[in-house]
């Protein structure tokens, strides 16, 4: 017990030291990791403040070096997350536009960075959902950016994840549909499972989400048993995933009960 108190006291001191000196000594690398954590917590808890905190950190890092492709990527990534958080079209559009601007800039600075292409393609797709009449022009652009991401790095699991999400939301007639989405998500999962964890500064999100979206695909096909399995796998990877814990599992269990009755 005393050992525990002592350990906690030491950690408290250490954190206090970080707080005191951190702001001068902290590196952009450290802030990126901190920003990523804020975003992750924000998604898990569906918390606006954490998401905005993460975005604010990325923005401050970028203000130090606007020509850095990775900083632009992370600000675009924070915008991408915030587009899912809001419901008002105007707010979503503002984050979409900002995200597209930063990801485009990231690509201008480093054209062969697969992650930026994948996320940019996804944001184009989201823009169509806000303004469907843009589908004719942005649809091909969205697909093209994701295809480019895969071409640049065929082992980028997030490119397949975003491809899968995009296909799930695209009618089959325009090249989407559940079956095509499942194919992409399975590929994403196989890559997440097989490739080693990247450098801590590089994007590493999405492993649990691949299972979540695969589960959503099964929900779409009314295969609730498989959907539940995928949601449970997502929780194994990320036990804090609030969307699965608080919503999806409950819905799928209700559906399973209904189907058994």
């Amino acid at each position: 017990m005393i050992r525990h108190i002592c350990a906690i006291t030491c950690i408290a001191c250490f954190l206090l030291l970080l707080n005191v000196y951190g702001e001068e000594d902290i590196t952009p690398e450290g802030l990126i990791i901190q920003g990523k954590q804020f975003i992750e917590t924000g998604i898990n808890n569906w918390n606006e403040q954490d998401l905005l905190q993460g975005r604010a950190l990325f923005e401050r890092i970028l203000s130090q070096d606007e020509e850095n492709y990775l900083y632009n990527y992370y600000l675009g990534y924070a915008d991408y997350r915030l587009t899912y958080f809001y419901e008002e079209k105007e707010r979503i559009s503002q984050y979409l536009e900002d995200g597209i601007e930063h990801l485009t800039r990231s690509i201008e600075l480093k054209d062969d960075f697969s992650e930026s292409h994948a996320l940019l393609g996804s944001l184009y797709g989201s823009k169509i959902s806000i303004k469907p009449l843009l589908g004719m022009t942005l649809g091909p652009k969205s697909g093209q950016e994701i295809a480019r991401a895969i071409e640049l790095n065929p082992e980028n699991p997030r490119a397949y994840l975003l491809d899968g999400i995009s296909k799930l939301h695209t009618p089959a007639i325009w090249g989407g549909g559940v079956d095509r989405a499942i194919k992409s998500l399975l590929k994403a999962i196989s890559l997440f499972d097989s490739i080693p964890a990247p450098d801590s500064l590089m994007p590493d999100w999405g492993h649990d989400e691949a299972y979540v979206w695969l589960g959503n695909c099964h929900m779409e096909k009314e295969d609730y048993k498989s959907a539940k399995e995928q949601f449970e796998k997502a929780l194994e990877i990320n036990p804090d995933n609030g969307w699965v814990k608080n919503e999806l599992l409950k819905v799928v269990e209700e559906k399973l009960k209904e189907s058994q009755m």
């Binding site: 005393i2 002592c6 006291t9 001191c13 206090l16 030291l17």
Partner: peptide
């Protein structure tokens, strides 16, 4: 154990002062 506790308290005090 007591010694660790004392060191912890000392560090804590030092940190607080520094802070």
């Amino acid at each position: 154990m007591n010694r660790i506790l004392i060191i912890g308290i000392l560090i804590s005090t030092f940190c607080s002062v520094l802070s």
